Computed example of a mutant assay.
Amino acid sequence: MQTQSRRPAGAFALLAAVAGALAAVVLGFLTFGAQATVASDGLPIAVAAPPGPLQAAAHAIASHGGGQVSWRVTSPEDGRKLLEDKEVYGVLELPSTVVVSGAVNPLGTQIAQQVLTGAAQAMGGTPKVETLHAASAAGRVAPLALSALAWVGCLAAGAVLILVGHRAGRDAGVAARFTQIVSAGVLVTGVLAGFLKLWDSSLPLGWDVLGFLFLTATGFAALQTGLLRLLGVRAMALLGPLYLVAPAVAGQVPELLNPAYRAVLWSWTPFRFSAEGLRSLLQGVPGAPDVTTGVWVLAALLVAGLVLALWPSRSALRKSALQETEADTPDRVVQVGVH
């Protein structure tokens, strides 16, 4: 009898060990694997020169670099436009001016500045660095940090709502889920705005920034609440690890990521859309393409999440139909005569 009772316990212990090993494998791929395989591959930078002899020097510079960087030869005006549109990470304006931007991913900016400075020095000049939309330390960190905090805050709100409903023995209603999504969006936006002011009071906090933060928070909250309603607590196995992807993948320059990580993780993770759009807004570039892209993606997350969270269940639809049928059935009075 003792041997039989111990077998299930031993099998369960082995299963738990396998689950732990699988969790380590998944998290290793999602987080540290992305950082361990970083290598520059086609990082876009530009070399700009006015018409004349410097054009030949620009083409000579662009012919070097191999596959690690991707040079674009352009004019000084077009080079700065490319930088404003975030199509390149930096511009070398011949003879010796390196132009970078604080509104671009800081890691990509750092690498581009090193490459461009080396190219200018190879020509025998002493490069001067010019920074457009200069960013403070908080301005560089805040976009990704606030995106991750929005995800965690809204996830905690959705999880508490589900757990309270399970404790009460019933599912939270449509009104409760909608209230939770909106209130979490408002409160988390307030928290994020407070952190911005705490970290760097000079950062802009206008209606465009607040609106983007609110869209980010409500989009995250709606998606999480919808998945939690659909999958229950099991959704935490998907939503929780996504938080770990934020600093490991979303904050990376895509040209530095292994192509597999770039396609499987970076291309769709919601953090990158919120972080890059917020970066442009905080650095005073509201018309940047990633702001428009971020608004569309976050709005799509909001709509999809609201559909998952608020769409009536089959039991609710049947109950509503039954109530309508009862309301439409007239009360009939049958006269019974006794002769």
Rank of each mutant, 00 (worst) to 15 (best):
L196Y: 05
G125T: 14
S101K: 04
V295L: 09
G52C: 06
G42F: 02
V38T: 10
A145L: 15
L92F: 02
A235H: 00
A57Q: 11
E326V: 13
Q113N: 15
Q114K: 15
A237V: 08
L27R: 04
L257F: 01
P254A: 09
P270S: 10
V104P: 04
L205I: 08
T179L: 09
R332L: 15
L198P: 02
A57V: 13
T329V: 11
M1T: 13
K86P: 04
E87R: 14
A150F: 03
P330Q: 06
L308C: 10
G287Q: 04
G158N: 01
G90Y: 01
V115H: 05
A48D: 03
Q2I: 14
A300G: 13
R234F: 10
T293N: 10
R332N: 12
L205A: 11
R279V: 00
P286R: 01
G10K: 14
T31H: 01
A217C: 15
R6D: 14
R279N: 05
Q68E: 15
S315I: 12
V38A: 13
V174T: 15
Y89A: 11
V100E: 06
F29Q: 10
M123K: 15
G125Q: 15
G79H: 01
L223M: 15
Y261D: 13
V303N: 06
Q2V: 15
A13T: 08
A184N: 03
V245L: 12
G42I: 05
G66W: 00
A193L: 13
W268C: 11
A103H: 06
A122Y: 07
P50S: 11
S96K: 07
F32I: 14
A13S: 09
P76G: 05
V88H: 04
A299D: 02
L82S: 00
R279F: 03
A135G: 07
A237H: 00
L281F: 02
T218E: 05
A46E: 01
V73G: 11
D200C: 08
A34L: 05
G294Q: 00
G194W: 05
Q252W: 01
D85P: 02
A16I: 08
V160I: 10
G185D: 07
V336E: 11
R272K: 14
L146Q: 07
A58H: 03
G305I: 02
A120P: 09
D41V: 08
T109F: 01
G65R: 05
V99P: 09
T292C: 00
P204T: 03
L306W: 02
T3Y: 08
S315N: 13
V233R: 13
T218H: 07
A56C: 00
S274A: 15
I45N: 00
A19L: 10
Q68I: 10
L298T: 06
G10Y: 04
P204R: 05
A24L: 12
A119F: 12
G165W: 01
